[in-house]
Amino acid sequence: MILQTITFYLFAAITIAAGFMVIAARNPVHSVLYLILAFFTSAGLFVLIGAEFIAMILVIVYVGAVAVLFLFVVMMLDINFTELRQGFLQYLPIGGLIGLALLIELIMVVGVWQFGPEVAGHAIPQATTNGMTNTEALGNIIYTQYVYAFQAAGVILLIAMIGAIVLTHRTRPGVKKQRISSQVYRDPKTTIEVKKIKPGQGI
């Protein structure tokens, strides 16, 4: 158990520090790298609570794909981020106030939940796994109880894809493309002509 506890505090501390550095780092690329670190350590935390499937999917999807694209975009952008930050202090009071309000709400809510006897009855139901691995357990409810939400989430992703194409895809005229099929179907009969040339005459 002691190893687990140490690991937990290690991961938790790294996650929080990395999360802080995401907003504190001066270089946007560093911010993204810290974000990746935060994702990765969160995956470690998931492993610690026994949710290994979620942990791996977090790494594969967020770290392996989404964050790569983030990094890609941030590296390509030529934005002066220090300039963008100039208004930061100006908005800090309002932002801080909102943050504080949310924090107080959270404390109230968690406090009531923790100490309020009247809500104890509605405690969140525990999942029963019947000895399944959590991959199986997830699959079992995603494809039965939550099939509606699951399919609808697919529709949302489809819309996002259509949207990205609608808003950005342009067919540029005059771009030379390799057409594999026309290369393959090119026929010697139509492209080459064999001529017999008599000596001394030319074509």
Binding site: E52, F53, V68
Partner: peptide, 25 residues
């Protein structure tokens, strides 16, 4: 011998790109 071994391999191999992209940058 973890339950999601194959996902672990997939996850780690998908991280490999960072070494290259970070060194490039």
């Amino acid at each position: 011998d973890i339950n999601v071994g194959i996902l672990y391999l997939f996850a780690i191999s998908s991280l490999g790109v960072y070494g290259i992209i970070m060194s490039g940058w």
